[in-house]
Protein backbone atom coordinates (compact mmCIF):
# COMPACT_ATOMS: atom_id res chain seq x y z
CA UNK A 1 0.00 0.00 0.00
CA UNK A 2 3.04 2.29 0.36
CA UNK A 3 5.58 1.99 -2.42
CA UNK A 4 8.77 3.95 -3.05
CA UNK A 5 9.99 3.70 -6.66
CA UNK A 6 13.50 4.96 -7.38
CA UNK A 7 12.98 7.79 -4.96
CA UNK A 8 15.67 10.41 -4.58
CA UNK A 9 15.59 13.48 -2.39
CA UNK A 10 18.14 16.25 -2.45
CA UNK A 11 17.85 19.26 -0.22
CA UNK A 12 18.99 22.67 -1.41
CA UNK A 13 22.75 22.70 -1.11
CA UNK A 14 23.05 19.38 -2.90
CA UNK A 15 23.00 17.00 0.03
CA UNK A 16 21.31 13.76 -1.03
CA UNK A 17 19.07 12.56 1.82
CA UNK A 18 17.74 9.60 -0.17
CA UNK A 19 18.87 8.09 -3.43
CA UNK A 20 17.34 5.47 -5.72
CA UNK A 21 15.22 4.04 -2.95
CA UNK A 22 12.90 1.11 -3.78
CA UNK A 23 10.62 -0.07 -1.03
CA UNK A 24 7.21 -1.69 -0.62
CA UNK A 25 5.22 -1.74 2.61
CA UNK A 26 2.08 -3.87 2.89
CA UNK A 27 -1.11 -2.92 4.69
CA UNK A 28 -0.99 -3.92 8.35
CA UNK A 29 2.78 -4.05 8.66
CA UNK A 30 4.66 -2.59 11.57
CA UNK A 31 7.96 -1.27 10.24
CA UNK A 32 10.89 -0.06 12.28
CA UNK A 33 13.19 2.32 10.41
CA UNK A 34 16.68 2.32 11.83
CA UNK A 35 19.92 4.01 10.99
CA UNK A 36 22.22 6.73 12.20
CA UNK A 37 21.24 10.35 12.39
CA UNK A 38 21.22 11.72 8.86
CA UNK A 39 20.62 8.32 7.30
CA UNK A 40 17.38 9.60 5.78
CA UNK A 41 14.77 8.15 8.15
CA UNK A 42 12.96 11.43 8.77
CA UNK A 43 13.04 12.32 5.09
CA UNK A 44 11.54 8.96 4.16
CA UNK A 45 8.70 9.45 6.64
CA UNK A 46 8.04 13.02 5.48
CA UNK A 47 7.59 11.88 1.87
CA UNK A 48 4.54 9.78 2.77
CA UNK A 49 2.22 12.67 3.86
CA UNK A 50 3.87 14.96 1.26
CA UNK A 51 5.46 17.14 3.93
CA UNK A 52 8.45 16.84 1.60
CA UNK A 53 8.31 16.09 -2.12
CA UNK A 54 10.85 13.74 -3.72
CA UNK A 55 13.36 15.18 -6.19
CA UNK A 56 12.84 12.10 -8.33
CA UNK A 57 10.85 8.89 -8.39
CA UNK A 58 7.34 8.10 -7.20
CA UNK A 59 5.85 7.61 -3.74
CA UNK A 60 2.63 5.62 -4.02
CA UNK A 61 0.25 5.74 -1.04
CA UNK A 62 -3.04 3.84 -1.36
CA UNK A 63 -2.60 3.75 -5.15
CA UNK A 64 -1.94 7.52 -5.44
CA UNK A 65 1.38 9.01 -6.48
CA UNK A 66 1.91 11.47 -3.65
CA UNK A 67 4.89 13.01 -5.45
CA UNK A 68 2.60 14.29 -8.21
CA UNK A 69 -0.36 15.21 -6.01
CA UNK A 70 -1.89 18.65 -6.49
CA UNK A 71 -1.50 21.06 -3.58
CA UNK A 72 -5.23 21.17 -2.98
CA UNK A 73 -5.39 17.37 -2.63
CA UNK A 74 -2.69 17.09 0.03
CA UNK A 75 -4.92 17.89 3.04
CA UNK A 76 -7.15 14.94 2.18
CA UNK A 77 -4.13 12.62 1.94
CA UNK A 78 -2.93 13.78 5.35
CA UNK A 79 -6.29 13.13 7.02
CA UNK A 80 -5.69 9.45 6.41
CA UNK A 81 -2.20 9.49 7.92
CA UNK A 82 -1.55 9.87 11.64
CA UNK A 83 1.73 11.61 12.46
CA UNK A 84 3.69 11.59 15.70
CA UNK A 85 6.65 13.93 15.85
CA UNK A 86 9.74 13.91 17.97
CA UNK A 87 8.83 17.38 19.25
CA UNK A 88 5.12 16.46 19.48
CA UNK A 89 3.90 19.77 18.03
CA UNK A 90 1.16 20.08 20.62
CA UNK A 91 -0.63 23.41 20.86
CA UNK A 92 0.05 24.91 24.28
CA UNK A 93 -2.81 27.40 24.20
CA UNK A 94 -5.49 24.71 24.63
CA UNK A 95 -6.11 21.73 26.86
CA UNK A 96 -5.56 18.05 26.11
CA UNK A 97 -9.13 17.55 24.92
CA UNK A 98 -8.95 20.41 22.43
CA UNK A 99 -5.56 19.27 21.13
CA UNK A 100 -7.02 15.87 20.26
CA UNK A 101 -10.14 17.56 18.87
CA UNK A 102 -8.14 19.47 16.26
CA UNK A 103 -7.93 16.78 13.55
CA UNK A 104 -11.68 16.14 13.86
CA UNK A 105 -12.48 19.85 13.68
CA UNK A 106 -10.34 20.07 10.56
CA UNK A 107 -12.15 17.10 9.03
CA UNK A 108 -15.51 18.66 9.90
CA UNK A 109 -16.76 15.91 12.21
CA UNK A 110 -19.97 16.91 14.05
CA UNK A 111 -19.25 18.16 17.55
CA UNK A 112 -21.08 15.55 19.62
CA UNK A 113 -19.71 12.64 17.67
CA UNK A 114 -16.24 14.19 17.81
CA UNK A 115 -16.35 14.56 21.61
CA UNK A 116 -17.04 10.86 21.97
CA UNK A 117 -14.14 9.97 19.68
CA UNK A 118 -11.75 12.33 21.46
CA UNK A 119 -12.53 10.66 24.79
CA UNK A 120 -12.08 7.22 23.23
CA UNK A 121 -8.64 8.23 21.90
CA UNK A 122 -7.63 9.75 25.25
CA UNK A 123 -8.81 6.57 26.96
CA UNK A 124 -6.64 4.42 24.68
CA UNK A 125 -3.50 6.33 25.68
CA UNK A 126 -4.51 6.48 29.36
CA UNK A 127 -5.16 10.22 29.57
CA UNK A 128 -8.93 10.25 29.98
CA UNK A 129 -8.65 11.77 33.46
CA UNK A 130 -6.37 14.53 32.16
CA UNK A 131 -8.60 15.90 29.38
CA UNK A 132 -8.85 19.33 31.01
CA UNK A 133 -5.09 19.57 31.62
CA UNK A 134 -3.01 22.02 29.61
CA UNK A 135 -0.08 20.36 27.79
CA UNK A 136 2.42 22.31 29.86
CA UNK A 137 1.11 20.57 32.97
CA UNK A 138 1.74 17.13 31.47
CA UNK A 139 4.94 15.09 31.87
CA UNK A 140 7.09 14.27 28.84
CA UNK A 141 5.57 10.81 28.59
CA UNK A 142 2.04 12.20 28.92
CA UNK A 143 2.71 14.77 26.23
CA UNK A 144 3.88 12.03 23.87
CA UNK A 145 0.78 9.98 24.65
CA UNK A 146 -1.35 13.03 23.97
CA UNK A 147 0.40 13.43 20.61
CA UNK A 148 -0.39 9.80 19.83
CA UNK A 149 -4.04 10.27 20.78
CA UNK A 150 -4.18 13.21 18.36
CA UNK A 151 -2.54 11.10 15.63
CA UNK A 152 -5.07 8.26 15.90
CA UNK A 153 -8.32 10.07 16.74
CA UNK A 154 -9.32 10.43 13.08
CA UNK A 155 -8.76 6.67 12.62
CA UNK A 156 -6.02 6.87 9.99
CA UNK A 157 -4.99 3.77 8.09
CA UNK A 158 -1.32 4.74 8.35
CA UNK A 159 0.51 5.89 11.46
CA UNK A 160 4.01 7.30 11.13
CA UNK A 161 6.22 8.28 14.05
CA UNK A 162 9.59 9.97 14.11
CA UNK A 163 11.56 9.14 17.24
CA UNK A 164 8.48 8.90 19.44
CA UNK A 165 10.47 7.67 22.42
CA UNK A 166 13.28 10.22 22.39
CA UNK A 167 13.74 11.96 25.75
CA UNK A 168 11.58 9.38 27.54
CA UNK A 169 12.68 7.09 30.33
CA UNK A 170 12.79 3.35 29.56
CA UNK A 171 9.55 2.43 31.27
CA UNK A 172 7.55 5.18 29.55
CA UNK A 173 9.22 4.40 26.21
CA UNK A 174 8.18 0.75 26.53
CA UNK A 175 4.56 1.86 27.16
CA UNK A 176 4.67 3.96 24.02
CA UNK A 177 6.04 1.06 21.97
CA UNK A 178 3.24 -1.19 23.28
CA UNK A 179 0.70 1.47 22.30
CA UNK A 180 1.92 1.48 18.71
CA UNK A 181 1.63 -2.31 18.77
CA UNK A 182 -1.97 -2.04 19.93
CA UNK A 183 -2.84 0.23 17.00
CA UNK A 184 -1.05 -2.12 14.61
CA UNK A 185 -3.12 -5.01 16.03
CA UNK A 186 -6.33 -3.33 14.87
CA UNK A 187 -5.04 -3.04 11.31
CA UNK A 188 -3.20 0.28 11.22
CA UNK A 189 0.00 0.26 9.16
CA UNK A 190 2.73 1.61 11.44
CA UNK A 191 6.11 3.10 10.52
CA UNK A 192 8.40 4.11 13.35
CA UNK A 193 11.80 5.71 12.93
CA UNK A 194 13.71 5.09 16.13
CA UNK A 195 17.02 4.61 17.83
CA UNK A 196 15.30 2.38 20.38
CA UNK A 197 14.97 -0.62 18.07
CA UNK A 198 14.96 -3.06 20.94
CA UNK A 199 11.76 -1.55 22.35
CA UNK A 200 9.86 -2.21 19.14
CA UNK A 201 11.58 -5.47 18.22
CA UNK A 202 8.91 -7.71 19.83
CA UNK A 203 6.15 -6.08 17.77
CA UNK A 204 7.66 -5.24 14.39
CA UNK A 205 6.94 -7.22 11.24
CA UNK A 206 10.08 -5.91 9.58
CA UNK A 207 13.08 -3.75 10.22
CA UNK A 208 14.33 -1.48 7.44
CA UNK A 209 17.84 -0.16 7.85
CA UNK A 210 18.95 3.04 6.17
CA UNK A 211 22.47 4.22 5.64
CA UNK A 212 23.32 7.42 3.84
CA UNK A 213 20.03 7.51 2.03
CA UNK A 214 20.09 3.92 0.84
CA UNK A 215 18.74 0.65 2.12
CA UNK A 216 21.21 -1.09 4.40
CA UNK A 217 21.36 -4.71 5.43
Amino acid sequence: MIRFEKVGKRYPGGIAALSALDLAIETGEMIVLSGHSGAGKSTLLKLIPAVERPSEGAVIVNGQNVAALKRAAIPFLRRNIGMVFQDQKLLFDRNAFDNVMLPLAIAGVATRDAGRRVRAALDKVGLLDRERAMPVALSGGEQQRLAIARAVVARPSILIADEPTAHLDDGTAADIAAMFHAFNQVGVTVLVATHHEALFAPYMTRRIGLSRGRLAA
Binding site: P49, P75, L77, R78, R79, M83, L102, I106, R150
Partner: peptide
Protein backbone atom coordinates in the same frame (compact mmCIF):
# COMPACT_ATOMS: atom_id res chain seq x y z
CA UNK B 1 1.73 24.66 10.78
CA UNK B 2 0.20 21.91 12.95
CA UNK B 3 -3.21 22.32 11.29
CA UNK B 4 -1.65 21.87 7.87
CA UNK B 5 0.10 18.68 9.02
CA UNK B 6 -3.25 17.41 10.30
CA UNK B 7 -4.87 17.91 6.91
CA UNK B 8 -6.33 21.42 7.09
CA UNK B 9 -7.21 22.98 3.73
Amino acid sequence: EVSRLLGAT
